[in-house]
Amino acid sequence: MIMSLGPYASFIVTSYAAAALVVVILIGWIVLDYRNQARRLRELARSGVTRRSGRSAVDAS
């Protein structure tokens, strides 16, 4: 079932392709940033840095 998009077919197809490309780029960016953040957190944990929120109220005194 092929639909005729009329005289604006090239604009419509190009717009959808551009939107799909932007979505793919954003997904890739998020994946790369997640890997980078996870690596940085592992390095911090390995070096002994701890989260302040990990302490209990008794330890803060």
Rank of each mutant, 00 (worst) to 15 (best):
M1E: 03
I2W: 03
I2Q: 09
I2F: 04
M3Y: 15
S4D: 14
S4M: 10
G6Y: 02
G6E: 05
P7E: 15
P7S: 13
P7V: 14
Y8C: 07
Y8T: 15
Y8P: 01
Y8Q: 15
A9W: 02
S10K: 15
F11A: 13
I12R: 07
V13A: 10
V13N: 07
T14C: 08
T14Q: 09
A18F: 03
A19I: 05
A19W: 09
A19G: 03
A20C: 02
A20F: 10
L21Y: 11
L21Q: 11
L21P: 00
L21E: 04
V22H: 00
V23M: 06
V24K: 11
V24F: 11
I25Y: 02
I25W: 04
I25S: 04
L26C: 04
I27N: 01
I27E: 01
G28M: 08
G28P: 02
G28S: 11
G28V: 10
W29E: 03
I30E: 07
I30R: 15
V31A: 10
L32C: 05
D33G: 02
Y34P: 04
N36R: 15
Q37M: 11
A38F: 01
A38M: 09
R39L: 09
R40N: 07
R40K: 12
R40A: 12
R42G: 03
R42D: 01
R42Y: 01
E43T: 11
E43I: 07
E43G: 01
E43H: 03
L44C: 02
L44S: 04
A45S: 09
A45G: 09
A45H: 04
R46C: 00
R46A: 11
S47R: 11
G48Y: 05
G48Q: 05
V49D: 00
R51I: 01
R51L: 11
R51H: 01
R51S: 13
R52T: 04
R52A: 08
R52C: 01
S53G: 10
S53E: 14
R55S: 00
R55W: 03
S56G: 09
A57R: 15
A57K: 13
D59Q: 15
A60V: 06
A60L: 14
S61L: 13
